[in-house]
Design a protein around this nucleic acid. Structure first.
Length: 481
RNA sequence: GGCCCGGUGGUCAAACGGUUAAGACACCGCCCUUUCACGGCGGUAAUACGAGUUCGAUUCUCGUCCGGGUCACCA
Protein backbone atom coordinates (compact mmCIF):
# COMPACT_ATOMS: atom_id res chain seq x y z
CA UNK A 1 0.00 0.00 0.00
CA UNK A 2 1.22 3.47 -0.93
CA UNK A 3 2.29 5.60 1.96
CA UNK A 4 -0.06 8.10 3.50
CA UNK A 5 0.31 11.67 2.32
CA UNK A 6 -1.58 14.61 3.78
CA UNK A 7 -1.28 18.29 3.09
CA UNK A 8 -1.85 21.51 4.91
CA UNK A 9 -3.09 24.04 2.40
CA UNK A 10 -3.53 27.43 4.00
CA UNK A 11 -4.04 30.63 2.14
CA UNK A 12 -1.76 33.48 3.16
CA UNK A 13 -4.43 35.94 4.19
CA UNK A 14 -3.34 36.94 7.65
CA UNK A 15 -3.01 35.23 10.97
CA UNK A 16 -3.00 31.56 11.81
CA UNK A 17 -6.45 30.85 13.13
CA UNK A 18 -6.60 28.08 15.71
CA UNK A 19 -9.09 26.26 13.51
CA UNK A 20 -6.51 26.16 10.75
CA UNK A 21 -3.80 25.16 13.14
CA UNK A 22 -5.91 22.34 14.45
CA UNK A 23 -6.50 21.14 10.90
CA UNK A 24 -2.76 21.29 10.25
CA UNK A 25 -2.11 19.35 13.44
CA UNK A 26 -4.54 16.58 12.52
CA UNK A 27 -3.15 16.44 8.99
CA UNK A 28 0.28 16.02 10.49
CA UNK A 29 -0.94 13.39 12.94
CA UNK A 30 -2.83 11.41 10.34
CA UNK A 31 0.34 11.21 8.27
CA UNK A 32 2.83 10.68 11.07
CA UNK A 33 0.77 8.15 12.97
CA UNK A 34 1.05 6.00 9.88
CA UNK A 35 4.59 6.81 8.89
CA UNK A 36 3.47 9.05 6.06
CA UNK A 37 4.40 12.47 4.69
CA UNK A 38 3.01 15.84 5.55
CA UNK A 39 3.06 18.39 2.75
CA UNK A 40 2.70 22.15 2.93
CA UNK A 41 1.07 23.89 0.00
CA UNK A 42 0.31 27.59 -0.17
CA UNK A 43 -3.02 28.41 -1.75
CA UNK A 44 -2.69 31.96 -2.93
CA UNK A 45 -5.16 31.99 -5.78
CA UNK A 46 -7.18 34.83 -4.33
CA UNK A 47 -5.02 37.71 -5.45
CA UNK A 48 -7.17 40.29 -3.71
CA UNK A 49 -6.93 38.84 -0.26
CA UNK A 50 -3.21 38.30 -0.21
CA UNK A 51 -1.55 39.75 2.84
CA UNK A 52 2.10 40.62 2.87
CA UNK A 53 4.09 38.52 5.29
CA UNK A 54 1.29 36.05 5.83
CA UNK A 55 3.33 33.26 4.30
CA UNK A 56 6.01 33.84 6.90
CA UNK A 57 3.43 33.59 9.64
CA UNK A 58 2.62 30.13 8.35
CA UNK A 59 6.24 28.96 8.37
CA UNK A 60 6.93 30.44 11.77
CA UNK A 61 3.84 28.97 13.34
CA UNK A 62 4.51 25.49 12.02
CA UNK A 63 8.05 25.71 13.25
CA UNK A 64 7.08 26.94 16.69
CA UNK A 65 4.69 24.10 17.29
CA UNK A 66 6.98 21.54 15.70
CA UNK A 67 4.82 20.53 12.77
CA UNK A 68 7.62 19.82 10.36
CA UNK A 69 6.54 19.36 6.80
CA UNK A 70 8.30 16.93 4.50
CA UNK A 71 7.69 18.96 1.36
CA UNK A 72 6.83 22.58 0.82
CA UNK A 73 7.69 25.87 -0.85
CA UNK A 74 10.64 26.51 1.46
CA UNK A 75 12.16 23.05 1.32
CA UNK A 76 11.08 21.72 -2.04
CA UNK A 77 10.02 18.20 -2.89
CA UNK A 78 9.25 15.98 -5.84
CA UNK A 79 5.89 17.52 -6.71
CA UNK A 80 6.57 21.24 -6.67
CA UNK A 81 6.15 24.03 -6.98
CA UNK A 82 4.18 24.15 -3.76
CA UNK A 83 2.72 27.59 -4.23
CA UNK A 84 -0.37 27.71 -6.39
CA UNK A 85 0.38 31.05 -7.99
CA UNK A 86 3.57 29.44 -9.32
CA UNK A 87 1.48 26.64 -10.77
CA UNK A 88 -0.97 28.99 -12.43
CA UNK A 89 -0.48 27.87 -16.02
CA UNK A 90 -0.96 24.29 -15.17
CA UNK A 91 -4.65 24.54 -14.32
CA UNK A 92 -6.15 25.93 -17.54
CA UNK A 93 -5.37 22.85 -19.68
CA UNK A 94 -7.16 20.67 -17.16
CA UNK A 95 -10.16 22.96 -17.20
CA UNK A 96 -10.22 22.99 -20.99
CA UNK A 97 -9.93 19.24 -21.02
CA UNK A 98 -13.15 19.15 -19.03
CA UNK A 99 -14.81 21.56 -21.46
CA UNK A 100 -13.91 19.27 -24.35
CA UNK A 101 -15.23 16.31 -22.45
CA UNK A 102 -18.52 18.10 -21.87
CA UNK A 103 -17.99 18.30 -18.12
CA UNK A 104 -17.44 22.04 -18.02
CA UNK A 105 -18.33 25.12 -20.01
CA UNK A 106 -17.43 28.74 -20.62
CA UNK A 107 -19.51 31.30 -18.80
CA UNK A 108 -19.59 34.94 -19.86
CA UNK A 109 -21.97 36.27 -17.25
CA UNK A 110 -21.03 39.54 -15.64
CA UNK A 111 -20.64 40.04 -11.94
CA UNK A 112 -23.65 42.32 -11.95
CA UNK A 113 -25.85 39.68 -13.53
CA UNK A 114 -24.66 37.12 -11.02
CA UNK A 115 -25.41 39.39 -8.13
CA UNK A 116 -28.89 40.10 -9.42
CA UNK A 117 -29.56 36.37 -9.11
CA UNK A 118 -29.25 36.43 -5.33
CA UNK A 119 -32.40 36.73 -3.29
CA UNK A 120 -33.00 39.31 -0.58
CA UNK A 121 -30.90 37.27 1.84
CA UNK A 122 -27.96 37.08 -0.52
CA UNK A 123 -28.72 33.44 -1.17
CA UNK A 124 -29.40 31.60 -4.38
CA UNK A 125 -26.83 30.44 -6.85
CA UNK A 126 -26.09 30.57 -10.54
CA UNK A 127 -28.92 29.92 -12.96
CA UNK A 128 -26.79 28.03 -15.50
CA UNK A 129 -27.41 30.75 -18.06
CA UNK A 130 -24.37 29.88 -20.18
CA UNK A 131 -24.54 26.14 -19.74
CA UNK A 132 -26.19 25.51 -23.09
CA UNK A 133 -24.92 28.38 -25.17
CA UNK A 134 -24.59 27.39 -28.85
CA UNK A 135 -21.09 26.42 -29.84
CA UNK A 136 -20.78 29.22 -32.42
CA UNK A 137 -21.79 31.87 -29.95
CA UNK A 138 -19.26 30.63 -27.46
CA UNK A 139 -16.54 30.70 -30.07
CA UNK A 140 -17.54 34.19 -31.14
CA UNK A 141 -17.40 35.50 -27.60
CA UNK A 142 -14.07 33.81 -27.02
CA UNK A 143 -12.64 35.25 -30.23
CA UNK A 144 -13.83 38.69 -29.21
CA UNK A 145 -11.85 38.29 -26.00
CA UNK A 146 -14.93 38.48 -23.78
CA UNK A 147 -14.03 37.97 -20.12
CA UNK A 148 -15.14 34.56 -19.02
CA UNK A 149 -14.82 31.84 -16.46
CA UNK A 150 -15.00 28.08 -16.81
CA UNK A 151 -17.72 26.39 -14.85
CA UNK A 152 -18.23 22.80 -13.89
CA UNK A 153 -21.21 21.14 -15.57
CA UNK A 154 -22.86 19.31 -12.73
CA UNK A 155 -25.45 16.63 -13.58
CA UNK A 156 -29.00 17.92 -13.16
CA UNK A 157 -30.36 14.68 -11.80
CA UNK A 158 -29.25 11.80 -9.66
CA UNK A 159 -27.18 12.05 -6.54
CA UNK A 160 -23.60 11.77 -5.41
CA UNK A 161 -22.54 9.67 -2.46
CA UNK A 162 -19.22 9.61 -0.71
CA UNK A 163 -17.62 8.06 2.32
CA UNK A 164 -16.10 10.13 5.06
CA UNK A 165 -13.85 8.51 7.63
CA UNK A 166 -15.53 10.46 10.42
CA UNK A 167 -19.07 11.13 9.28
CA UNK A 168 -19.70 7.97 7.31
CA UNK A 169 -21.76 7.85 4.15
CA UNK A 170 -23.15 11.12 2.88
CA UNK A 171 -25.43 11.57 -0.09
CA UNK A 172 -26.30 14.82 -1.79
CA UNK A 173 -28.75 15.35 -4.61
CA UNK A 174 -26.97 16.65 -7.69
CA UNK A 175 -29.65 19.28 -8.19
CA UNK A 176 -28.45 20.88 -4.95
CA UNK A 177 -24.98 21.34 -6.37
CA UNK A 178 -24.08 24.50 -8.19
CA UNK A 179 -22.18 24.77 -11.45
CA UNK A 180 -19.21 26.13 -9.60
CA UNK A 181 -16.48 28.22 -11.15
CA UNK A 182 -13.31 26.26 -11.85
CA UNK A 183 -11.21 28.89 -13.52
CA UNK A 184 -11.68 32.54 -12.68
CA UNK A 185 -11.70 35.43 -15.13
CA UNK A 186 -8.20 36.39 -14.08
CA UNK A 187 -6.96 32.99 -15.12
CA UNK A 188 -6.43 31.72 -11.59
CA UNK A 189 -8.18 28.54 -10.53
CA UNK A 190 -10.65 28.61 -7.69
CA UNK A 191 -9.79 26.86 -4.47
CA UNK A 192 -12.18 24.07 -5.32
CA UNK A 193 -10.52 23.33 -8.61
CA UNK A 194 -6.88 23.85 -7.69
CA UNK A 195 -7.38 21.62 -4.71
CA UNK A 196 -8.44 18.65 -6.76
CA UNK A 197 -5.73 19.12 -9.35
CA UNK A 198 -2.97 19.63 -6.82
CA UNK A 199 -4.07 16.94 -4.44
CA UNK A 200 -3.98 14.52 -7.32
CA UNK A 201 -0.68 15.73 -8.73
CA UNK A 202 0.90 15.69 -5.29
CA UNK A 203 -0.39 12.19 -4.57
CA UNK A 204 -2.35 13.25 -1.51
CA UNK A 205 -4.06 10.18 -0.10
CA UNK A 206 -5.99 11.68 2.83
CA UNK A 207 -7.81 14.97 2.63
CA UNK A 208 -8.24 16.34 6.15
CA UNK A 209 -10.27 19.52 6.59
CA UNK A 210 -13.03 21.16 8.57
CA UNK A 211 -16.56 19.90 8.25
CA UNK A 212 -17.64 23.13 6.59
CA UNK A 213 -16.45 21.41 3.40
CA UNK A 214 -18.72 18.44 3.86
CA UNK A 215 -21.43 19.66 1.54
CA UNK A 216 -19.06 20.66 -1.21
CA UNK A 217 -17.26 17.35 -1.32
CA UNK A 218 -19.52 15.88 -4.02
CA UNK A 219 -18.31 18.60 -6.39
CA UNK A 220 -14.76 17.40 -5.86
CA UNK A 221 -15.73 13.83 -6.48
CA UNK A 222 -17.50 14.73 -9.69
CA UNK A 223 -14.23 16.31 -10.77
CA UNK A 224 -12.13 13.33 -9.77
CA UNK A 225 -14.50 11.12 -11.69
CA UNK A 226 -14.45 13.36 -14.74
CA UNK A 227 -10.67 13.04 -14.82
CA UNK A 228 -10.75 9.38 -13.98
CA UNK A 229 -8.64 9.96 -10.88
CA UNK A 230 -8.70 8.09 -7.65
CA UNK A 231 -10.73 9.77 -4.92
CA UNK A 232 -8.78 10.37 -1.71
CA UNK A 233 -9.89 9.35 1.75
CA UNK A 234 -11.87 12.16 3.32
CA UNK A 235 -11.48 13.03 6.98
CA UNK A 236 -13.76 15.88 7.93
CA UNK A 237 -13.18 17.45 11.31
CA UNK A 238 -15.80 18.84 13.69
CA UNK A 239 -15.70 22.61 13.90
CA UNK A 240 -14.25 24.60 16.75
CA UNK A 241 -16.82 26.95 18.16
CA UNK A 242 -16.75 30.06 20.26
CA UNK A 243 -19.35 31.29 22.71
CA UNK A 244 -21.06 34.55 21.83
CA UNK A 245 -22.08 37.22 24.27
CA UNK A 246 -25.69 36.17 24.11
CA UNK A 247 -24.73 32.62 25.06
CA UNK A 248 -25.07 31.12 21.60
CA UNK A 249 -22.16 29.51 19.81
CA UNK A 250 -20.79 29.82 16.31
CA UNK A 251 -17.65 29.08 14.36
CA UNK A 252 -14.75 30.45 16.38
CA UNK A 253 -13.84 33.92 15.17
CA UNK A 254 -12.33 37.19 16.27
CA UNK A 255 -15.26 38.28 18.35
CA UNK A 256 -14.65 35.35 20.70
CA UNK A 257 -11.31 36.70 21.86
CA UNK A 258 -7.87 35.70 20.78
CA UNK A 259 -8.33 33.02 18.20
CA UNK A 260 -5.11 33.23 16.29
CA UNK A 261 -2.06 31.30 17.28
CA UNK A 262 0.02 34.44 17.69
CA UNK A 263 -2.75 36.09 19.68
CA UNK A 264 -2.80 33.23 22.14
CA UNK A 265 0.98 33.21 22.41
CA UNK A 266 0.83 36.93 23.00
CA UNK A 267 -1.59 36.31 25.83
CA UNK A 268 0.87 33.97 27.45
CA UNK A 269 -0.06 30.50 26.29
CA UNK A 270 2.84 28.26 25.40
CA UNK A 271 2.91 26.92 21.83
CA UNK A 272 3.06 23.32 23.06
CA UNK A 273 0.04 24.00 25.25
CA UNK A 274 -1.96 25.33 22.34
CA UNK A 275 -1.34 22.25 20.22
CA UNK A 276 -1.93 19.95 23.16
CA UNK A 277 -5.25 21.57 23.90
CA UNK A 278 -6.56 21.80 20.36
CA UNK A 279 -5.57 18.19 19.74
CA UNK A 280 -8.19 17.29 22.31
CA UNK A 281 -10.90 19.43 20.74
CA UNK A 282 -12.61 16.84 18.65
CA UNK A 283 -10.42 13.88 19.36
CA UNK A 284 -10.08 11.61 22.36
CA UNK A 285 -7.37 9.04 23.00
CA UNK A 286 -8.27 5.53 24.08
CA UNK A 287 -6.93 5.99 27.59
CA UNK A 288 -8.08 9.53 28.33
CA UNK A 289 -4.58 10.90 28.66
CA UNK A 290 -4.55 14.69 28.56
CA UNK A 291 -0.99 15.91 28.65
CA UNK A 292 0.60 15.06 25.33
CA UNK A 293 3.80 15.98 23.59
CA UNK A 294 3.62 16.09 19.82
CA UNK A 295 5.50 12.79 19.64
CA UNK A 296 3.05 11.16 22.01
CA UNK A 297 0.16 12.50 19.97
CA UNK A 298 1.58 11.02 16.80
CA UNK A 299 1.85 7.72 18.61
CA UNK A 300 -1.67 7.70 20.06
CA UNK A 301 -3.59 9.33 17.28
CA UNK A 302 -6.17 7.43 15.36
CA UNK A 303 -8.96 8.59 13.12
CA UNK A 304 -11.64 6.59 14.90
CA UNK A 305 -11.18 8.77 17.97
CA UNK A 306 -12.37 11.85 16.09
CA UNK A 307 -15.80 13.03 17.10
CA UNK A 308 -18.55 14.41 14.94
CA UNK A 309 -19.98 17.17 17.06
CA UNK A 310 -18.60 20.69 17.25
CA UNK A 311 -16.46 21.62 20.25
CA UNK A 312 -16.52 24.89 22.15
CA UNK A 313 -13.11 26.42 22.74
CA UNK A 314 -12.61 26.74 26.49
CA UNK A 315 -10.09 29.29 27.70
CA UNK A 316 -10.32 27.95 31.26
CA UNK A 317 -9.10 24.56 30.23
CA UNK A 318 -6.41 26.08 28.07
CA UNK A 319 -5.19 28.05 31.08
CA UNK A 320 -5.16 24.89 33.16
CA UNK A 321 -2.96 23.22 30.57
CA UNK A 322 -0.64 26.20 30.63
CA UNK A 323 -0.30 25.94 34.40
CA UNK A 324 0.44 22.25 34.16
CA UNK A 325 3.16 22.86 31.60
CA UNK A 326 4.68 25.58 33.73
CA UNK A 327 4.70 23.37 36.81
CA UNK A 328 6.48 20.67 34.84
CA UNK A 329 9.29 23.01 33.79
CA UNK A 330 12.86 22.65 35.00
CA UNK A 331 14.37 25.48 37.02
CA UNK A 332 16.35 26.69 34.04
CA UNK A 333 13.40 26.62 31.73
CA UNK A 334 11.26 28.47 34.21
CA UNK A 335 13.91 31.10 34.74
CA UNK A 336 14.30 31.54 31.01
CA UNK A 337 10.62 32.33 30.59
CA UNK A 338 10.27 34.33 33.79
CA UNK A 339 13.33 36.55 33.52
CA UNK A 340 11.84 39.18 31.20
CA UNK A 341 9.03 39.66 33.69
CA UNK A 342 11.40 39.72 36.65
CA UNK A 343 13.23 42.51 34.89
CA UNK A 344 10.01 44.47 34.61
CA UNK A 345 9.75 44.45 38.38
CA UNK A 346 13.34 44.48 39.56
CA UNK A 347 15.18 46.11 36.70
CA UNK A 348 18.78 44.96 36.68
CA UNK A 349 18.86 44.09 40.39
CA UNK A 350 20.08 40.64 41.31
CA UNK A 351 17.64 38.64 43.38
CA UNK A 352 17.61 35.13 44.78
CA UNK A 353 15.88 33.75 41.70
CA UNK A 354 15.45 30.33 43.19
CA UNK A 355 13.22 31.72 45.92
CA UNK A 356 11.13 33.49 43.35
CA UNK A 357 10.81 30.32 41.34
CA UNK A 358 9.72 28.40 44.39
CA UNK A 359 6.96 30.83 45.21
CA UNK A 360 5.78 31.38 41.64
CA UNK A 361 6.00 28.15 39.74
CA UNK A 362 3.04 26.39 41.31
CA UNK A 363 1.04 29.56 41.36
CA UNK A 364 1.05 31.08 37.93
CA UNK A 365 -0.93 30.10 34.93
CA UNK A 366 0.85 32.51 32.62
CA UNK A 367 4.23 34.16 32.96
CA UNK A 368 2.76 37.54 32.28
CA UNK A 369 1.03 37.37 35.66
CA UNK A 370 4.38 37.77 37.35
CA UNK A 371 4.73 41.57 37.41
CA UNK A 372 1.33 42.01 39.00
CA UNK A 373 1.99 39.31 41.56
CA UNK A 374 5.30 40.87 42.50
CA UNK A 375 4.33 44.51 42.29
CA UNK A 376 4.31 44.93 46.07
CA UNK A 377 8.07 44.33 46.08
CA UNK A 378 8.61 47.49 44.13
CA UNK A 379 6.41 49.65 46.18
CA UNK A 380 4.69 48.96 49.46
CA UNK A 381 0.98 49.51 48.91
CA UNK A 382 -1.08 51.64 51.27
CA UNK A 383 -2.93 49.30 53.57
CA UNK A 384 -5.31 49.65 56.52
CA UNK A 385 -4.41 48.50 60.00
CA UNK A 386 -7.30 46.05 59.88
CA UNK A 387 -5.17 43.81 57.67
CA UNK A 388 -3.27 42.77 60.75
CA UNK A 389 -6.28 41.19 62.31
CA UNK A 390 -6.80 37.62 61.20
CA UNK A 391 -8.97 35.17 63.04
CA UNK A 392 -7.38 31.97 61.85
CA UNK A 393 -3.90 33.15 62.74
CA UNK A 394 -5.19 34.52 66.02
CA UNK A 395 -3.83 37.97 65.41
CA UNK A 396 -5.40 41.13 66.81
CA UNK A 397 -4.59 44.82 66.96
CA UNK A 398 -3.25 44.04 70.44
CA UNK A 399 -0.75 41.30 69.70
CA UNK A 400 0.22 42.28 66.16
CA UNK A 401 2.44 45.22 67.18
CA UNK A 402 4.03 43.03 69.82
CA UNK A 403 4.79 40.39 67.23
CA UNK A 404 6.21 42.96 64.85
CA UNK A 405 8.37 44.46 67.58
CA UNK A 406 9.70 41.05 68.56
CA UNK A 407 10.37 40.11 64.96
CA UNK A 408 12.25 43.32 64.31
CA UNK A 409 14.48 42.77 67.32
CA UNK A 410 15.39 39.26 66.24
CA UNK A 411 15.86 40.09 62.60
CA UNK A 412 18.08 43.06 63.31
CA UNK A 413 20.55 40.68 64.92
CA UNK A 414 20.74 38.39 61.90
CA UNK A 415 24.24 38.34 60.40
CA UNK A 416 23.21 36.57 57.19
CA UNK A 417 20.08 37.73 55.45
CA UNK A 418 19.08 34.52 53.82
CA UNK A 419 16.03 32.36 53.80
CA UNK A 420 17.11 29.60 56.16
CA UNK A 421 18.46 32.05 58.70
CA UNK A 422 15.29 34.11 58.61
CA UNK A 423 13.25 30.98 58.87
CA UNK A 424 15.11 29.58 61.85
CA UNK A 425 15.11 32.80 63.79
CA UNK A 426 11.40 33.45 63.31
CA UNK A 427 10.37 29.89 64.07
CA UNK A 428 12.56 30.00 67.15
CA UNK A 429 10.95 33.26 68.17
CA UNK A 430 7.45 31.88 67.86
CA UNK A 431 8.46 29.00 70.01
CA UNK A 432 9.89 31.23 72.70
CA UNK A 433 6.82 33.44 72.64
CA UNK A 434 4.68 30.36 72.81
CA UNK A 435 2.47 31.43 69.95
CA UNK A 436 1.57 29.51 66.83
CA UNK A 437 3.69 30.31 63.81
CA UNK A 438 0.81 32.05 62.09
CA UNK A 439 0.35 34.51 64.91
CA UNK A 440 3.85 35.78 64.41
CA UNK A 441 4.10 35.39 60.66
CA UNK A 442 0.79 36.92 59.67
CA UNK A 443 1.59 40.43 60.89
CA UNK A 444 5.12 40.14 59.55
CA UNK A 445 3.86 39.21 56.12
CA UNK A 446 1.26 41.97 56.12
CA UNK A 447 3.80 44.58 57.12
CA UNK A 448 6.32 43.31 54.58
CA UNK A 449 3.90 43.13 51.68
CA UNK A 450 1.06 45.48 52.52
CA UNK A 451 -1.41 43.16 50.87
CA UNK A 452 -3.62 40.34 52.03
CA UNK A 453 -2.66 37.88 49.33
CA UNK A 454 0.92 37.30 48.32
CA UNK A 455 2.91 34.69 46.48
CA UNK A 456 5.10 33.03 49.07
CA UNK A 457 5.02 33.54 52.79
CA UNK A 458 6.51 36.07 55.21
CA UNK A 459 10.01 34.59 55.16
CA UNK A 460 10.36 34.43 51.39
CA UNK A 461 9.17 37.98 51.12
CA UNK A 462 11.63 39.19 53.76
CA UNK A 463 14.46 37.39 52.02
CA UNK A 464 13.60 38.90 48.68
CA UNK A 465 13.21 42.38 50.09
CA UNK A 466 16.70 42.47 51.55
CA UNK A 467 17.45 43.31 55.14
CA UNK A 468 17.27 47.06 54.96
CA UNK A 469 14.00 47.33 53.11
CA UNK A 470 12.47 44.48 55.07
CA UNK A 471 13.16 46.11 58.40
CA UNK A 472 12.02 49.47 57.11
CA UNK A 473 8.65 47.97 56.19
CA UNK A 474 8.27 46.19 59.51
CA UNK A 475 8.96 49.37 61.45
CA UNK A 476 6.53 51.19 59.22
CA UNK A 477 3.95 48.58 60.10
CA UNK A 478 4.46 49.33 63.73
CA UNK A 479 3.55 52.97 63.22
CA UNK A 480 0.08 51.98 62.00
CA UNK A 481 -1.13 51.25 65.49
C1' G B 1 -35.47 29.35 3.49
C1' G B 2 -33.28 24.61 0.67
C1' C B 3 -29.63 20.99 1.53
C1' C B 4 -25.96 18.55 4.88
C1' C B 5 -24.30 17.32 9.80
C1' G B 6 -24.81 16.99 14.91
C1' G B 7 -27.38 16.60 20.14
C1' U B 8 -24.23 12.56 27.23
C1' G B 9 -23.33 17.58 33.39
C1' G B 10 -21.71 24.86 32.34
C1' U B 11 -17.26 23.11 28.90
C1' C B 12 -14.09 18.94 26.64
C1' A B 13 -15.60 14.11 26.58
C1' A B 14 -15.72 7.96 27.74
C1' A B 15 -19.19 4.14 27.41
C1' C B 16 -19.74 1.64 20.07
C1' G B 17 -27.40 -3.32 23.18
C1' G B 18 -26.65 -5.10 29.67
C1' U B 19 -21.96 0.06 33.81
C1' U B 20 -24.19 2.49 40.53
C1' A B 21 -23.44 6.62 32.93
C1' A B 22 -15.99 7.12 33.50
C1' G B 23 -12.37 11.04 33.52
C1' A B 24 -10.66 16.27 32.90
C1' C B 25 -11.70 21.74 33.30
C1' A B 26 -14.82 25.03 36.02
C1' C B 27 -17.59 25.41 40.70
C1' C B 28 -18.33 24.08 46.12
C1' G B 29 -16.58 21.77 50.82
C1' C B 30 -12.79 19.52 53.97
C1' C B 31 -7.52 18.48 54.96
C1' C B 32 -2.48 20.31 54.52
C1' U B 33 -0.43 25.25 55.45
C1' U B 34 2.78 31.13 56.97
C1' U B 35 -1.89 34.36 53.24
C1' C B 36 -3.04 32.81 48.21
C1' A B 37 -1.81 28.89 45.35
C1' C B 38 0.10 23.74 44.81
C1' G B 39 -1.12 18.89 46.62
C1' G B 40 -4.69 15.25 48.91
C1' C B 41 -9.80 13.82 49.83
C1' G B 42 -14.94 14.55 48.90
C1' G B 43 -19.34 16.94 46.60
C1' U B 44 -23.09 19.41 43.10
C1' A B 45 -24.15 18.42 37.98
C1' A B 46 -25.76 14.82 32.04
C1' U B 47 -27.96 10.72 28.09
C1' A B 48 -33.12 17.11 24.47
C1' C B 49 -38.34 15.06 23.89
C1' G B 50 -41.79 11.30 21.99
C1' A B 51 -42.75 6.80 19.59
C1' G B 52 -40.97 2.15 17.96
C1' U B 53 -37.30 -2.50 17.56
C1' U B 54 -35.53 -5.61 21.73
C1' C B 55 -35.80 -9.66 27.44
C1' G B 56 -33.01 -5.00 27.80
C1' A B 57 -31.72 1.11 24.90
C1' U B 58 -27.06 6.76 25.85
C1' U B 59 -26.14 3.06 22.04
C1' C B 60 -30.51 0.81 16.47
C1' U B 61 -35.05 3.17 13.54
C1' C B 62 -38.58 7.15 12.85
C1' G B 63 -40.72 11.83 14.20
C1' U B 64 -40.40 16.50 16.93
C1' C B 65 -37.41 20.13 18.97
C1' C B 66 -32.76 22.49 19.42
C1' G B 67 -27.83 23.66 17.64
C1' G B 68 -24.24 24.15 13.82
C1' G B 69 -22.49 24.19 8.71
C1' U B 70 -23.31 25.48 3.67
C1' C B 71 -25.63 27.87 -0.43
C1' A B 72 -19.08 33.56 -3.86
C1' C B 73 -14.97 34.62 -9.99
C1' C B 74 -13.22 33.28 -0.58
C1' A B 75 -10.57 29.57 0.92
Amino acid sequence: MASVRTRFAPSPTGFMHVGNLRTALYEYLVAKSQGGQFVLRIEDTDRERLVEGAEDVIYKTLEKVGLRHDEGPDIGGDFGPYVQSLRKDLYRPYAEQLVKAGKAYYCFCTKERLESLHDENGLGGYDRHCRDLPQEEVQQLLDAGTPHVIRQKVPLTGSTTFQDAVFGEITIENKEIEDQVLLKADGYPTYNFANVIDDHLMHITHVVRGSEYLTSTPKYNLLYEAFGWEIPTYIHLPLIMGRNEDGSVSKLSKRHGSTSFEGLVEEGYLPAVITNYIALLGWCPKDNQEIFSLEELAKSFSVDGISKSPAVFDYDKLAWFNGEYIKAMSEEEFLFHAMPYYREVFGEQEKPWEILRSILQARITKFREIPTLLSFFQELPEYPVEFFTNKKSKTTSENSPQMLQAAIEVLEQLPNWELTAIHDSLIGLAERLEVKNGTLLWPVRIAAAGTLVTPGGAMEILALLGKEEALRRLRLGLTKF
